[in-house]
Computed example of a mutant assay.
Amino acid sequence: MLVYPSGIDLSSRSLQPLSGLLAGHRRRIGSRWRRLTCGRQAVLVLAHPRCGDTYARLAAGFRVGIATVHRYIREAVDLLAALAPTLEQVITTVRKKAYVILDGTVLPIDRIAADRPYYSGKKKHHGMNVQVLADPAGRLIWASDALPGAVHGLTVARAHGTPAALAADDVKCWADRAYQGAGPAVRVPFRGKNLRGWRRRHNRDQGQGSLRLEGAVQHQCRAGRVERRDERGDPAAEHVHHAVRDLHHHRGVRRPGGWHEHAVPRGRVR
């Protein structure tokens, strides 16, 4: 078994909040001693979704058991997911904003024979459909619970009551053409190629907002790669995107010189 040092392109802005959250949890449950400190557990947890390291590689790199890695990651994900705001809390916050942006993404998951409902015909892979709301700058505000990837984005939004909640509080929302007919609060681009005047400006401004959100959504996809599922075959992704959303607001900026923000020992089984 070989072990080599590596790094994560994150700064201490991501590590410190998670370390403090883990330390508080350990005090509440009365955990006296563990193999890894809160800081080392936070690095392990961040390395899993950010770098895509498997449980076996993390176990070899941090010199702990695979079961310990699974327990550490699930513990941290559940703590972060509990901090995610509800849709009602988010609607109260976004009332002060000029508008919000609604979009969705399919978080990829590993596939097995039972994954047929999770196959996305649009993305051509198995995944979980998640709807997100963002502010005009493209910063993530809220992420919905995950539904199978085969479900259309508009259906997922309606299942969580997002268009109805926006309309009830008169919150303006921009979305792409996939949300045509979502409701009076959701504005979509005009159809047609030869648009003129204010219709053309409307599509241009809305397209710029969608591009900003697309960057945030793609970051969530890269940072929230799901490793697998439990013994029942249910996806283990239900809370991961909520955890990634909370870490998204604390993440650091990559240094121009490289990625060496946090040293991570990686293992390779021979």
Rank of each mutant, 00 (worst) to 15 (best):
A143D: 01
N203M: 11
A81I: 02
S31C: 15
A178C: 01
F62P: 00
D205E: 15
V132A: 13
L44R: 01
H160T: 07
L21Q: 01
Q131W: 00
A98Q: 13
H126D: 06
G215K: 10
V69R: 00
A175F: 11
T37H: 07
I112V: 07
H249Q: 10
A263F: 04
N203V: 09
A150C: 10
R74H: 15
D169P: 00
E75G: 11
Y119I: 04
C51G: 09
A67N: 10
I91E: 05
A76M: 09
L133F: 14
V3D: 06
V217R: 05
Y118P: 03
R74V: 04
V100D: 06
K97L: 15
Q206I: 15
D145P: 00
T54I: 06
L195E: 05
L247D: 12
L211H: 03
R95F: 04
Q41S: 06
V171T: 07
V156H: 04
D135Q: 01
A178N: 05
R251Y: 09
V77W: 07
P108H: 11
V217E: 07
G161W: 03
R228V: 08
K172E: 00
G65T: 08
S14E: 13
M1H: 09
V94E: 09
I141E: 14
F62G: 05
G39L: 06
R254K: 13
R116C: 13
A223R: 12
P265E: 13
V253H: 10
V264T: 03
H250K: 14
L247W: 11
N203G: 12
Q89C: 12
G161V: 06
A243H: 09
K172A: 12
H48C: 11
S11H: 10
D135R: 07
L36S: 06
C38I: 12
V226P: 00
L102H: 04
R177V: 13
I73L: 14
A47Y: 08
R34K: 09
G7D: 15
Y118G: 02
D176C: 02
V226G: 04
T155Q: 07
A98P: 04
A175K: 10
G197K: 09
P49Y: 08
H152A: 02
R212H: 09
Q131H: 00
R158V: 08
R139L: 02
D103V: 01
L79G: 05
H152M: 00
R196T: 13
P85V: 06
N194E: 15
Q89S: 12
A23D: 12
K123V: 02
Q16F: 14
L2E: 15
P189L: 10
K172I: 08
G127H: 07
S120D: 14
S6W: 10
V188K: 01
C173Q: 06
G252C: 02
